[in-house]
Amino acid sequence: MFWKLPMFGKISKIGIRPPKPEPGRDGLAITLIVRNEARHIGEWARFHHRAGVARFLVYDNGCEDATLPILRETLPPEALVIVPWKQVFSDARMGREIHNQVLAYAHAASNFGGAHRWMAFIDVDEFLIPKRAGSLPEALAPLGEARNLSLPWHMFGRNGHETPPEGGVIANYLRRAADPMSDRRGIRAFKCVVDPCHLTALRVHSMETDGTDLTCNDRGESARGAEREKPGFYSADHIQLNHYYARSEQELREKIGRGPNLVAKSPEYERKVRRTVEAIEAEEVEDRAALDFLARRDAVEPAEASCGRS
């Protein structure tokens, strides 16, 4: 008799063997998975390149628009790695799909992590912002030998835009949820920046280094995985993670139309997304952290250029 094994959720946590550090490893790499992000990828790449990211590890999940050409035009060749990543893998015995984004993260850390001191794992609607320093590596330097950094989402809603405004995301979305640590649905979450040479297990929103979930905030204060959700762990003193969750109403509808990563959750997805947007927009504050960083860079870069002229 043939027995069909029960279906469960995706395999969303993957253990890895950390890569060995390469001689002279340094800098920050960002890993992201993309599919048809041409509308925003140029702004995202320019911002993070100006913020000091040394390498962009881009996993192409079947892009059919200009996402990849824009990246090639925006970033220097030595800073960009594009990996084809259109696939669906599953555990053949249990029938469980392996989370393709987590698999990309594991591949990036294993194959490229040895060259870098830090590796971030974010999406195109997320921006890492140095709050005081002139670059992300400079902002990370005071953390010393820290190996696992958890950054809370700062969630931005529609900001009154019905259609995508001209001028990009940073200039047009200046209001976010007032409390990044709110327990309102969908607001409180983290992304990680880790030392890939100590990374032992990973999910989208949490990672383990040296076999433990011990993490720290951007002030270097440590906590176990679940404890980072306590209000006292919150910090965005040095690095802020902006998540432009909804952008315009048109883009929100497109987001809903694309559906969730897990097909079985599709009927609930629109309700979930709308509830999250409602929670974001229930109480908002102005936030100009990204614009302030760009203004600092604009003030510094002409002076840097003049230092190189004879």
Rank of each mutant, 00 (worst) to 15 (best):
71 L>T: 09
88 V>K: 15
139 A>R: 01
247 R>L: 06
280 I>K: 01
295 A>V: 04
87 Q>K: 11
271 R>Q: 15
307 C>S: 14
24 G>P: 04
1 M>K: 08
192 C>L: 07
309 R>Y: 09
165 P>R: 07
140 L>K: 04
275 R>A: 15
195 D>P: 04
309 R>N: 03
238 H>P: 00
242 N>L: 04
126 E>D: 08
165 P>H: 08
97 E>T: 15
242 N>M: 07
145 E>T: 12
263 V>F: 12
61 N>D: 12
87 Q>F: 11
95 G>F: 04
36 N>L: 01
103 L>M: 15
33 I>E: 03
279 A>C: 14
212 T>H: 03
158 R>W: 01
61 N>S: 07
213 D>T: 10
289 A>V: 08
169 V>M: 06
247 R>D: 03
290 A>M: 02
56 F>Y: 03
121 F>D: 06
162 E>H: 10
276 T>D: 05
282 A>F: 06
81 V>H: 09
68 L>C: 12
307 C>Y: 09
169 V>K: 01
83 V>D: 06
194 V>K: 06
35 R>W: 02
126 E>K: 04
95 G>E: 10
77 P>V: 08
207 M>V: 07
257 G>L: 08
47 F>W: 02
265 K>N: 12
216 C>R: 08
138 E>V: 01
276 T>L: 13
235 S>E: 02
62 G>M: 12
267 P>C: 03
4 K>Y: 06
234 Y>K: 09
308 G>S: 12
201 A>W: 08
280 I>R: 00
